[in-house]
Amino acid sequence: MTDYKAKEVKGTKGDIVSADKSHSWFYSDIVKEHFFKPQNFLEGELKESEYNAVGRVGSPACGDELKIWLWIDPKDEKIKRFWWKTFGCASAIAATSITSVIATENNGLTIDEARNLKPQDIVKRLGGLPPRKIHCSVLADQALRDAIDDYYRRTEQSDKIRSIK
């Protein structure tokens, strides 16, 4: 008998709240706010000169894909702009939106701060997420790290790149 279910979704293994049929409709007000009024998503296209880092994570096979574009000020290496596009559910959209706010508020996160941003920090700012939603929809921290590597690649500081690509 062939397995009639789709394969395990990557990144969510063991993260399913069993028999919880009341799932996902109880998003926090902050989640709803960012879902219905997402901030900083990229409408249309950017010019090459407008950004200096691109990060990408996830795959639509898992139900979520995220792409971000950053402008990191070369002078103080703080994140000044953060645009994004995502294919994902409410919590993916909200998590990405709030990360764009976190990254750029108060004159912007430094690269080190951004690299140390954890999914927990994002979830906390959202006022919590259903547990089963966290692994699949909070991808923005990974996208940030991916984009920062890209920034170092573009600025020829390859010694600072952390992932091998």
Partner: peptide, 17 residues
Amino acid sequence: GSACTSEKLDPSHVILA
């Protein structure tokens, strides 16, 4: 039929079929 709406986070087996 999205995975996100299913209990097990799998997309619809019917549409995949």
